[in-house]
């Protein structure tokens, strides 16, 4: 039931954004999202309650600025590597520990790792993220974790418990 309502709200929102907020569009969108969420909602992982407003607020205010900042850094770093005549690389696959339990949270963390400097997540396990790193530094697992996912881990751990 919770999944059904959440999927309905998400579908209706996307429909209204796509078609504009006219009366006919919004009403037909309600009907369409009702039918669609009745059919597919059990296969999806849209599931939230009223705390979503607080979470989205936190997400926008804290996570997105940090994310954008790290992403710009990542791109400048990548540009430096690409444009230098001899490409400085020391690639390797490393493991990173994570404490986040929620699946959507782990997905967001993996995506953030992909988009931040020099790292790309390859696979996620129960509590490990396998990461491809362009420039491996350090030796121990704890060092990797701190280097790669430290700030995101804290922020996302607060948002997705």
């Amino acid at each position: 039931m919770r999944k059904f309502l959440s999927a309905f709200v998400v579908f209706w929102l996307i429909w209204s954004v796509l078609s504009g907020f006219r009366m006919q569009d919004v009403l037909i969108g309600a009907v369409v999202s009702l039918v669609l969420s009745f059919v597919v909602s059990r296969y999806l992982s849209f599931s939230f309650d009223f705390r979503i407003f607080y979470k989205v607020f936190l997400f926008i205010v804290i996570y997105i600025p940090v994310f954008l900042y790290r992403m710009v850094l990542a791109n400048l770093d990548m540009a430096r590597r690409v444009l230098s005549p001899s490409i400085p690389l020391n690639p390797g696959f490393v493991k990173v520990k994570t404490k986040i339990k929620s699946k959507t949270g782990k997905l967001t963390l993996a995506n953030s790792i992909t988009l931040t400097p020099g790292t790309m997540s390859v696979e996620v396990d129960e509590e490990t993220i396998y990461v491809h790193w362009v420039d491996v530094q350090g030796e121990e697992k704890e060092e990797y974790s701190k280097e790669i996912s430290g700030s995101f881990e804290n922020i996302l751990g607060g948002i997705f418990r």
Partner: peptide, 8 residues
């Protein structure tokens, strides 16, 4: 996991 969001 990504599929469960993107499919919608």
């Amino acid at each position: 996991q990504g599929m469960k969001i993107i499919v919608g």
